[in-house]
Design a protein around this nucleic acid. Structure first.
Lengths: 342, 342
DNA sequence: AAGCGCGACTAGCGCGCTCTAGTCCCGAAC
DNA sequence: GTTCGGGACTAGAGCGCGCTAGTCGCGCTT
């Protein structure tokens, strides 16, 4: 027969509590609490005795109990899409910044079987004090509603209509730099493969039209529907290959899309940048993977992460202030995928 | 002056509790609890009244309190590396399977600033009942120690020395299929770019040597140190280009590595598969990104995820049984990156 | 000697929930 | 009419912690 106490909590019997540590160290529970919170009020020798006892017992403070008692979780909830490399960059940068400010981070992924609402519900029920939503696709009205119930910061997404903070890069400026770079090279037939309902796509699409128009190329503006995935790039590439009036340059929705596109072109023997120039967006890791290094719009994940965490924490301290919108400047990084048209 | 009650809990005043719902519905707290746990014992009309009141108040059960009171969290902790596409596939498959069995999922990422120990600590302090470690790099002794304190399942990693469950694919069989495929095509100079300390790398390296030897090619076996990243592939590619005795085929540590390698070869004008054949490992999304579709060893993320969740949950019900090791069969997927040598 | 301040430590309530052991009431059985 | 069974509901004791309001010496002042 199986030992009851061992079954109670996984492998190692009942999980030790503060009371166990207190007894082992010969002090009160409150004292142990003080020590683990690094609060003054415990003598040096006692402190050591407590830590020693805790270590011997394998004690680990219980986050759930802690949150309950303190009515604070000091936890930031991050919603992400697990397949986006740029979001991976963001997550990696969020961790150290949150830690610096004394916050924990909880991740919740969206997936085909798990929509944004469910991912957010999970974070909220875990008492996250603030939510960082990485590139959310939800409608502004939903975001606004969420913003009333919790502290919300959008990352890589603006929503001026919703009362929430946001961090993004200036899509207008990024797209303008990209298009102007191509125009200066001599391109006129510049196509845009958009990002569908991906974060920033709408803004980039409009900026594309405006910039084209500003350069007297309004009639050459053309958008192919896409998405922020390699597959979308591949599909767009196929489209292009069949197109009798093939453009001389393409601005992709993001890097993944650009890489998929270039791969399709390369297979068909269409040389980049000789026959067609390609510009990406994000400067994520994948931009090094194309047959030639990708010219792209760099978004600074580290700075975006920093700002997001600061916005969120700042708002926790003052719920009342008006929504703030941080817009960082993107930067065109010219690499090998763009050249003058033939 | 700012309203105190509003500041207490983020945006929306104090978060409603079960007691609030109970009062609004005119029942006891216990009744509300019953309703939210879908337990019998509440009348139909009362049930509806409670749910209505809860909805109107925006009530959401507090996970922390729930875990504390029930002494069960019904939560699986998943440790992952946020930049590995294959792990992203696993995560996406873990969610629905966990849900099917009534478990929540908590993610904790490793990152440059956050090692595996810290990622695991976070999961444990959140009372995860079982840990799924995706491709952990920790030493077997550490995994064994962890396995004594918690229910642990390794995914994409074996550790026969540690008393923990694991799910992996047969690296030996995978590598053998790959090498034999190349040998049958006529290759003799087959190089292996290994995966460094990545999950499965050691096994694959050894399997490579064994298979080469089995085919009388022991003297042609050569390993270039690598990693499970594109950069490692790029570096290996540079190495190859400078090599006077260039091999005719390469078995990469994983797909990312293969893609980096192919990109470097492509830039140098070395044709794949005409001049050199390349085989990857994982069959993750990136395998479609190379200049030609990648021949690779397919690991079935969905089935791996299913098995991991089942192993973990099964172990929670019976802590005592011996560690189980599930080894799935990988499958060679022949695409365009391999061909007979010239 | 009494008073005072201060550092070290403790008692005990309450966080929002689960769960056991009830209570209450209504209809069927004897 | 009494008993019994069972469905609907409630009281109240924790879960592991944080935190407020203490107590208890001990050295120092007056």
């Amino acid at each position: 027969m199986i030992d009851e106490s061992a079954r109670q909590d996984g492998a190692a019997g009942r999980r030790p509590t503060m009371a166990d540590v207190a007894q082992a160290a010969g002090v009160s529970r409150a004292l142990v609490s003080l020590v683990f919170r690094n609060q003054p009020g415990a003598g040096e020798s006692t402190r050591e005795r407590v830590l020693l006892a805790a270590d011997r017992l394998g004690y680990r403070p219980d986050t759930a109990a802690r949150m309950l008692a303190s009515r604070r979780s000091r936890t930031l909830g991050v919603m992400l899409t697990v397949h986006q490399p740029f979001q991976a960059d963001l997550v990696e940068a969020i961790y150290p910044e949150a830690e610096r400010l004394g916050y924990e981070v909880l991740l919740s992924a969206t997936a085909p079987s798990r929509d944004e609402r469910r991912a957010v519900e999970a974070l909220l029920s875990h008492r996250c004090e603030a939510l960082l939503l990485l590139g959310p696709r939800s409608e502004a009205a939903d975001l606004d509603a969420l913003g009333r119930r919790a502290v919300v910061t959008l990352v890589s997404r603006r929503a001026p209509e919703a009362r929430v903070d946001s961090v993004s890069t200036a899509d207008e400026a990024g797209v303008r730099q990209a298009v102007e770079h191509l125009v200066e090279l001599g391109h006129r037939e510049i196509l845009h493969v958009d990002g569908g309902d991906g974060p920033g796509s709408a803004e980039r699409r409009e900026a594309y039209f405006r910039t084209m128009a500003a350069h007297g190329l309004g009639e050459h503006a053309r958008v192919l529907p896409g998405a922020h995935t390699e597959d979308a790039g591949v599909a767009a590439g196929r489209c292009l290959l069949e197109d009798p009036a093939r453009p001389t340059a393409v601005l992709a929705g993001n890097d993944r899309c650009a890489v998929g596109l270039m791969r399709t072109l390369a297979r068909a023997g269409v040389a980049v940048p000789d026959e067609i120039s390609v510009v990406g967006y994000d400067d994520s890791h994948v931009s090094h993977l194309a047959p030639v290094d990708l010219t792209t719009i760099r978004q600074d994940a580290d700075r975006m992460a920093e700002h997001s965490v600061h916005l969120a924490v700042g708002r926790l301290e003052d719920t009342a202030k008006a929504p703030r919108e941080v817009v960082l400047d993107p930067r065109l990084v010219i690499r090998g995928s763009t050249a003058p048209p033939r």
